[in-house]
Amino acid sequence: MLTYLINGLSLGSVYAIIALGYTMVYGIAKMLNFAHGDVIMIGGYVAFCSTSYLGLGPIPSTLFAVVVCTVLGIVVERLAYKPLRNATSLAVLITAIGVSYFLQNAALLIWSSNPKSFPNLVGSIPNVVIGELVIPSTAIVTVIANLLIMLALTMFTGRTKMGKAMRAVSEDKGAAQLMGINVNRTISVTFAIGSGLAAIAGVLLCSAYPTLMPTTGSMPGIKAFTAAVFGGIGSIPGAMLGGILLGVIEIFAKAYISTQLSDAIVFAVLIVVLLVKPTGLLGKKVSEKV
C-alpha cells in the first residue's frame, strides 16, 4: 500500500513537471503545445547520449539535456509558432502537431526505432530502507526535484520582473504591451523554461522507466496534458496537484483494479472532475462578457 503510494507520488511528480510546461505555455500563449511530449523524448535521448557516449556524470548530462532542450524550445518557437501569433488556435494546434511529427521522425532517423535502455542516472544514490519498506532512490530524487522546481517557479513568477511580465501577458496581452512589456520575448522565455523542464522530466521519466524510443514522450505527454487540465489549465499549483493526483490514481488503478484499464480509469476520473468543476480543480472561472 505504502509502496504504491510512493510509486504514485514519483510518477505523479514526473507528470507534474511535464504538466507545468503545458500549463505555462497555455497560460501565456493560449496554445495546446502537443509537441511538448516529444521534447521530453529528445531530453531523454540527449541525456542518454551524453552518459553513454561522452561519459558525463548524471548531473552534467542532465544539465546538458536541459540546455539542448531549452535551445530547441526557443528555436521551435521562433520558426514554427512565432509566425502564427495572430492565427486561429486550431492553426497553431496543427503546427504543434507538425512539430511533434518532425521531432519524432528526426529522432527515428538519428537514434533508430530500436529501444535504448536508459542508464539509471540516480542509481548511484542508495535506496532508503525503513523496516520492510524500500523507497527507491529514483522516487526520492523525483519528488525532491519536483518540489524544488515548484518552489523555484513560484518564486520566479511571484518575485522577478520577468515572472511578473509573464503573469501580466497571460492576463491581458494587449494591456501588457501597452505597459511596455515585450510580449514576444516573454512568450519565448516561457517556451524556454517549459522545454528545459521537459528535459528534466525526460531524465526522471527514463530513470524510472528505462526504455527509450522515439515515441516514449507521446503517452506521458498526453497524460501530463490531462493532468494540467485536471488541475485547471493555466494554473501552476493546479498542474502540480493534477500531476500528482493523476500519478497516484494511475498506480492504484494498476495495482487494485486492472493493468489494462488503468488509462481508462485515469481518463474517467478526469471526465468526472471536469463535469463537477468545469475549469479543473484550481482553475479560475472566467465569465464571458456579453
Binding site: A80, P83, T95, I97, G98, V99, Y101, F102, N105
Partner: peptide, 13 residues
C-alpha cells in the same frame, strides 16, 4: 511534417 508546418505558416501568416 515540414510540409505540414510550412502550409500552416503560409496560409496563416
Amino acid at each position: 511534417a515540414i510540409v505540414l508546418i510550412l502550409v500552416m505558416i503560409v496560409t496563416n501568416n
